[in-house]
Design a protein around this nucleic acid. Sequence first.
DNA 1: GCCGTTTTCGGCCCGACTGTTTTCAGTCG
Length: 576
Amino acid sequence: MVNAELVRAFERIADLMEIDGADTFRINSYRRAARTIKDLSEDIAVVAAEERLTDLPGIGKGTADRIRQFLETGRIDALGELEAKFPPGLPRLLEIPGLGPKKVALTYSKLGVKDVADLKKVIESGELALLPGLGEASVKKIADGIRFLESSGGRTPLGRALPIAEAFAERVRKLLGVKQVELAGSLRRGAETIGDIDILCDSDDGEAVIRQFVGFEGVKRVLVSGSTKGSITVDLGKEREVQIDLRVVESESFGAALQYFTGSKEHNVRLRERAAAKKWRLNEYGLFDGEKCIAVKREADIYRKFGLPFIPPELREDRGELNLKKTPELVTLDDIRGDLHMHTLASDGKCSIEEMAAAAGKLGYDYIAICDHSKSSVIANGLSVERMKKHIRAIRAAAENATGIAVLVGCECDILPDGSMDYPDEILSECDWVVASIHSAMGSGVSDKLSPTERTIAAMENRYVSAIGHPTGRLINKRAPMELDMAAVVKVAVRTHTILEVNANWMRLDLKDLHVRLALEAGASVVINTDAHHTDQLLQMRYGITTARRGGATRKDVVNCWTLSSLRKQIAKKRG
DNA sequence: GCCGTTTTCGGCCCGACTGTTTTCAGTCG
């Protein structure tokens, strides 16, 4: 699909226009269009062919023309003109914290700085500090920014950030005069990766709170230290660091502040537009009609003033949530009755069947499925047919002895390059539950092999395949997803009663939020599994929950929120 | 460049912090 290329093109246009000093509203239009295409679950070429481009939010006649030009010629004139004006490395400079479009334009025009290497040279030589509007302090900030960019390597996975965030939130909670502390920002929205950690607290003495915050043990650098806002970085290991922002507000405006700092930016812009339409003003201190504050205490009050239900943080992404008529009852961790994908010592897990069952029982689960690897996953010590037969007997025996929890016989069976299953039906039919996954030959377009989409569909056609595991195979920040035609996969999933997995491992989160939504809208069901290789990893369920919530999943959509008998009925329905 | 319980033209979200500005611009979220 050409969607991703188009997103990059529009973002590049916006970046270059900013450096060019163009009208900010026009720049934002390009960014909005880029985001719309990024969120799109279908091929933009199909949308264009069906003349539906201007139905998409933020895409008008002008942008539609540019999309069509790109589809036909692979180029966009508007981008070509900007690229003729500026060297190619310039937009990259915008990613450096402390360096914005104005300063990028200035360093380019006055000093000929074309890329990061040039920038380092003029910092070294002292030329940068001599430019108007810049001084020693700004230059130091930029130099730090370069180091941060080179060490941070992009966004931090949710599962890496959340434990750090919770630890710092706990330390803030213990400070004198602090009554309320909440995580905000993308972390509270449960985004798969986060740019920085946002923490909000209340206090009558913001200055004192910030002073103590920036002095916490483990703080690597202090970026900002004011009376309401503090900004620090902490080490993530491997020379990476993550930024933590703390905002302090007075207790009375906590609700307004929490709404404001939870974002997303786009969600808030939409909400403030609605405020403006009513001649109100919305900011982190409350919702105001003239000088009069009309909502401030709780987040829900603010939404109610707009005639809206409470919008759960996970949905605040400007993906149509402001049209909701009532608050959706999104799935919660308490709704989960079982975990249907975990490994044991039999393949590449680190714990026994009994240990996994006991740990799951402690979490209050009613059932689990043991799903070790099949024979082709050699690296993962996949089980041969003979070993699997023995393993099935071992699981049945463990199930007999387990108290208070049902232990299902399962497997994670490889989907081979030709679309067939790694185990014969004779073995699969012995299992109560089968997760089918692609682990090899993930690249598409390899000749004499089926595409990932064809392989996935072939697996779903097998009556013993209960679910598709980590459908796109992506590893966040490490491996790109396979090119899967998700709309086609979802359609077959519905027809064949195959369940799609939301793999809760924070490196995967696969299906991702938008795919969950696509699946549910088509009428498919999902299962949220941890794919745990150790009892500790069973706790990663929370990340799968937030991902499913972001996709709008309710308890009814998630099969491991069902009773065991309902789940068995679903499996039987597929087996026919 | 988009868009319409204020509109097909004229708007388009809002505030904190920093540095170098002697009254505010740039950056960020």
